[in-house]
């Protein structure tokens, strides 16, 4: 066995995926920024001005972490799933499968590129928010770490979806009908403490709650769920995704006959 990495191969995959972003700049970056801006205008400035502070934070500032998570989650899933689904769909995957690259390098290239895009997007939204709201970040290091780990986890999740999906409809289905509702219901726009007990308990089964809660904690120092539990859950999702990807490559599921 040879443990040397094919760095040229890894670089080729990563840059190829990043290049796709520039070609689809409008879809990849401009559209999420425009959408987020609309949220800030509607929820932050218009409606938000009538809502009282939540945990000592203005509503406009309160929704920033949730909005970033909303974009990071959906974009991670759709970028990574599209990235690996496209070569399967067009047939160019033959080259990847016949190349001297290990599955680790393939995942690192595709997931790395998708996560990079999401992280950059997260920062762009953060910068855009500054135009509308004043905010400060209590734990900047933790904020960056949570952002990175979330982007990587959901890019892995997207990679899995891209391999599982056998058509473009299924590919769209997950970000649109799973990630978006879970994020909306996961406390992007409210503190789950505002919910009646039954709904609050139910919400705790929504994995996105933990992401948003931890992320908001890194901004304002307050959280719906204890930070330790949130971080444990994030690590658990990451581990599950890594496990599934490992299984995909071990069995060749939907990649090799």
């Amino acid at each position: 066995m040879n443990f040397r990495m094919n760095m040229h191969g890894l670089r080729a995959i990563y840059l190829f995926e990043m290049a796709r972003t520039w070609r689809t700049l409008f879809q990849s970056v401009v559209s999420p920024v425009v959408t987020t801006t609309l949220y800030f205008i509607v929820f932050g400035a218009a409606i938000g001005s009538r809502i009282t502070e939540i945990n000592g934070v203005t509503f406009a500032a309160f929704i920033i972490p949730g909005l970033i998570m909303l974009s990071v989650l959906t974009e991670s899933v759709s970028n990574a799933s599209f990235g690996i689904h496209l070569p399967r769909f067009t047939g160019t995957i033959y080259e990847l499968l016949s190349a001297p690259v290990s599955s680790f390098e393939v995942v690192l290239g595709y997931v790395g590129a998708a996560a990079t895009k999401s992280i950059v997007l997260g920062f762009i939204i953060l910068a855009t928010a500054r135009i509308f709201v004043d905010y400060n970040i209590a734990h900047p290091m933790a904020m960056v770490c949570i952002l990175v780990v979330t982007a990587v986890t959901f890019s892995l999740f997207g990679f899995i979806i891209g391999i599982w999906a056998d058509n473009f409809e299924k590919l769209q289905f997950v970000p649109m009908l799973v990630i978006t509702p879970l994020t909306f219901l996961g406390g992007s726009f409210y503190s789950i403490d505002m919910l009646p007990t039954f709904w609050r308990t139910l919400t705790l089964f929504n994995p996105v709650v933990y992401l948003i809660s931890a992320f908001r904690w890194s901004f304002y120092g307050t959280a719906d769920v204890p930070v330790g539990i949130s971080i444990a859950m994030i690590v658990l999702f990451l581990a599950i995704c890594i496990g599934i990807v490992w299984w995909i490559f071990r069995t060749g599921y939907r990649l090799k006959n």
Binding site: N6, T90, G91, A99, V101
Partner: peptide, 23 residues
Amino acid sequence: TTDAFETVWNTVSFSRGLFGKKP
């Protein structure tokens, strides 16, 4: 089977890298 929106130069350079050769 090709990447329709890539240029000829890029796609051939990509293959070289993928197969572990320096540019």
